[in-house]
Design a protein around this nucleic acid. Structure first.
Lengths: 134, 134
DNA sequence: CTACTGTACCACCACACACAGCACACCTAG
DNA sequence: CTAGGTGTGCTGTGTGTGGTGGTACAGTAG
């Protein structure tokens, strides 16, 4: 089930992408599963169809789901999504962004790492995608 | 010295804010230090004065620097910047955002935490701000 | 055929970002 | 005193992104 939070600073289509990506990564959505239709999800979220289509377009472009013409979108089998360099670049960017956000907060390194560890390991509960080769 | 990267996805004024905040947090800019003038920094970065002014405005509003009328902006003494709830909210947001960015990458929890630990501890080298009470 | 699927357009509006120029109050150096 | 530097405020203009609304088309299932 996908939820949209209007108080969230992220744009709507990004919330949809993140939500579905997380469901796939945690195994909540298994490979082969069918995603809700563009119009159906748009109706449920009281959002424009183009907004959902934009989210689906990104998921398809990044290889999380595959389109079967006339049928819908289906979760694709786990595989490596980015090159090593691209992965490294994205990880670095994510870390720097995290630091910039917590840099004024009164937490020490230990507290930050403890909180991060808890949240990260919660993801691997349903066994995230860790496929072999490309 | 402040650098602007046009390839960076962050808006210019945000890059300036982040850069200066980090310099203050790491002690590279000590309390009482004078920031470069709005027009001077804008000239150096080949950027509009309003863009620098916007960055300075945010730094002032968040209490990182203080304005002495007619003289300039000066790094203020360390103190608590946000309420406990606000700190907790921002930390949570930062963590969720980090997870959303690394969720498709082929790193396990151990690798992520190791990388995070290295970068976070690098910040505390010059003794970050950890003042007592509000 | 009809009804559903994703996809691709078009137009419109709102907002953030950056740029440009101008004005004002303040302080210091001469 | 004046001249020049300081932050701050305002108006405007242009560009890009996000969101909405509507239409259209090819593919698939019944």
């Amino acid at each position: 089930m996908i939820k949209i939070n209007t108080g969230d600073s992220r744009p709507i289509f990004r919330q949809i992408v993140d939500s579905i990506r997380r469901q796939i990564a945690t195994g909540e959505l298994e490979p082969g599963s069918k995603l809700p239709s563009v119009r159906g999800l748009a109706m449920q979220l009281t959002v424009n169809t183009n907004t959902v289509a934009k989210a689906y377009s990104e998921l398809t472009a990044q290889g999380w789901v595959e389109s079967r013409p006339g049928l819908g979108l289906f979760v694709s089998k786990p595989r490596k999504l980015f090159s090593d360099r691209e992965q490294e670049r994205r990880l670095n960017e994510a870390i720097q962004q995290f630091i910039n956000q917590v840099i004024g907060l009164d937490y020490d390194a230990g507290q930050l790492l403890e909180r991060l560890e808890r949240e990260i390991k919660a993801l691997e509960k349903g066994q995230g995608r860790s496929a072999g080769n490309e």
